[in-house]
């Protein structure tokens, strides 16, 4: 099912084949030092999970759930949309999504860069513990929920309950948030912090020194939760 393309590139077809078989072929090609293009992806789940550092993989079309999950340093490109949990628990590496990323993009990620060219669905960056998520569009409802560390950067602003129950880490917004979640507050960023974020964006061709940044951080009241304060958290 695979055939040589350019000199060092190999094509793998997903179609309706068992995903395990597709992924094994993908890993074998990577072990062989090949770049891989996966064709006819049909929005299927679990493509390219657990890829090693040397991998260079491009998915043509849209993928389903958990694409690039557990990434350990691979560079992964998804031409169109990704389903739930793209890049979930990524340790390092880079994942670029050309279109929309579904719910919980970059959930629990620890390092690396997840770059989404379109919008992201609800709970983008949920429980993230490191790394950077860059969303050129807007992040959905409850994005950054319970994140511990890392930066979630959204150029198009955020939906409701942004950074709800944020534990640590930062949500950077260059557009408006529909509302902030509980225990989140907006802080004026330091000049060098802005410079660092802009440098990261410039490195990806997204430099723009005119942005009006808002940095959302934890208010840290939930760090010392007491049941008698429970009412303060009942926002529904």
């Amino acid at each position: 099912m695979s055939r040589p393309a350019a000199a060092n590139r190999i094509e793998v077809v997903a179609a309706d084949r068992p995903v395990r078989e597709v992924n094994e072929e993908l890993r074998a090609a990577v072990a062989d030092g090949r770049e891989v293009v996966v064709r006819d992806t049909r929005s299927r789940h679990n493509l390219g999970v657990g890829l090693p550092a040397a991998a260079r993989v491009r998915f043509e079309g849209s993928v389903g759930y958990y694409c690039g999950g557990l990434n350990d340093g691979a560079r992964i490109e998804i031409e169109r949309n990704a389903g739930w949990g793209v890049g979930e628990a990524m340790a390092e590496g880079e994942i670029v999504v050309g279109g929309y990323a579904g719910m919980a993009a970059g959930a629990s990620m620890r390092g690396g860069v997840l770059h989404i060219r379109g919008d992201a669905g609800p709970r983008c960056g949920v429980a993230m513990k490191g790394g950077d998520i860059i969303v050129e569009g807007r992040i959905g409802y409850l994005s950054g929920f319970m994140a511990h560390a890392g930066r979630l950067i959204a150029l198009g602003g955020a939906g409701e309950a942004c950074a709800d129950s944020l534990w640590g880490g930062e949500v950077w917004l260059a557009g408006p948030a529909e509302s902030l979640g509980v225990d989140a507050r907006i802080e004026e960023p330091e000049a060098e912090e802005v410079a660092a974020v802009e440098a990261l964006l410039a490195g990806r061709g997204l430099g723009d020194s005119t942005r009006d940044w808002r940095k959302v951080v934890s208010e840290q009241r939930l760090w010392h939760f007491e049941s008698r304060d429970a009412k303060a958290w009942l926002m529904i």
Binding site: H45, S62, G83, Y141
Partner: peptide
Amino acid sequence: EEQAVRRIYREEGAVTNYDG
């Protein structure tokens, strides 16, 4: 799931996610 509607519309096309 998107992969289900792709059984009907096999080619890449506009997908609406009612995620909100």
